[in-house]
């Protein structure tokens, strides 16, 4: 778990990652100095509302920052190798094989003109140099593993014949086909029906564990986090505002934003408590408020909040928070 210093190199170490968009002089800071660590076989979650920079963080790790954006600083070390310094060819060799991703949009993420089989097989043949027949056999196994009852028939199907849940399972099969060290799952269940969200999530966790793949789960859904994550990073407006082991975060949330997010989760055991939404919305990264970026929405904001961005301080082992309300938060 996090906190305890280890002699071994972490699987993924992100330090002060900055991904900016737009002009050099007045950049839009979508990700503005994010740091986190992920150990082998661990599941770590990044949580936050839409627009807080979590998806861009995921894409930055993959080297797939959308057009107009650039990594302006920081380090992304996968098993000690800094990915940001790699050239295009070297990064290409890491993607798919050591680092893969499942995207938020199952309906559009598959190539509409290629069969499911073609899309999985090309990966196996390209990375693992399997023969045609081996690739077909392995694809059938993979589709079987993600819960398709007639995997052989599915190979010849085109994506438009499949439901969102089925497509996302195909994406998961594809992403795990080369048994990568790390899978980035960006809102993998958000676009799916509530009834199959849990099913797909459980599948993701089980299969990742089978092939020893660590998972970076990007989500806005705290209910999802509580089930699968070992450690949680809460992001707000391009910054990590709180970081804690999952149990700690749920039992003792310190940042008012985290508390707000938790108050939004319907809990059966606490059904008497009313759902309290956080007022307002995430500020767009080109119009950030001064000081603490959450202050305008914060129920506890006081005079000091707009003065400067508070630092991330460790309040107990493994539990960090970026808020003036907490001792030591004076950076």
């Amino acid at each position: 778990m996090s906190g305890a210093p280890s002699t071994r190199v972490s699987l993924l170490e992100v330090r002060d990652l900055r991904t900016w968009f737009g002009p050099e002089a007045t950049p839009v800071r979508a990700v503005d100095g994010v740091s986190f660590t992920l150990e082998r076989r661990q599941t770590v979650a990044i949580v936050g509302e839409s627009g807080c920079g979590k998806s861009v963080t995921g894409l930055s790790l993959m080297g797939l920052v959308p057009a107009g954006g650039r990594i302006a600083g920081g380090a992304v070390r996968l098993d000690g190798t800094d990915l940001i310094g790699l050239d295009h060819g070297e990064m290409t060799r890491i993607r798919g094989r050591r680092l893969s991703m499942v995207f938020q949009e199952p309906m559009t993420s598959l190539n509409p003109l290629m069969t499911v089989g073609e899309q999985i097989e090309e990966m196996l043949r390209y990375h693992l140099s399997l023969s045609r027949r081996q690739a077909v056999e392995r694809s059938v196994e993979l589709l079987d593993a993600v819960g398709f009852s007639r995997p052989k028939r599915l190979l010849g199907e085109y994506p438009h014949r499949l439901s969102g849940g089925m497509r996302q399972r195909v994406m998961i099969a594809m992403a795990l086909s080369c048994e990568p060290e790390l899978l980035i799952a960006d809102e993998p269940t958000t676009a799916l029906d509530v009834t199959i969200q849990a099913q797909v999530l459980e599948l993701l966790r089980r299969l990742a564990a089978q092939v020893d793949t660590a998972v970076l789960l990007i989500t806005h859904d705290l209910a999802v986090v509580s089930e699968v994550a070992d450690h949680v990073y809460v992001m707000y407006a391009g910054l990590v505002v709180e970081s804690a082991p999952t149990r700690v975060l749920f039992s003792k949330p310190l940042h008012p934003y985290t508390q707000g997010l938790l108050a939004c989760v319907t809990s059966i055991s606490e059904s008497k408590r009313r759902l309290r939404p956080i007022r307002g919305t995430v500020p767009p990264p080109d119009a950030l408020p001064p000081g603490c970026r959450f202050a305008p929405r914060c129920p506890h904001a006081f005079a000091r909040c707009p003065s400067a961005v508070p630092g991330l301080v460790e309040v107990e082992a493994g539990h960090q928070v970026r808020c003036y309300l907490h001792p030591g938060g004076t950076a």
Partner: peptide
């Protein structure tokens, strides 16, 4: 180029030509 499936193809680790 701007479609999601292209991003997926890159995420699968294929070079630009592929």
């Amino acid at each position: 180029f701007s479609h999601d499936y292209v991003r997926t193809a890159f995420s699968k680790g294929f070079p630009v030509r592929h």
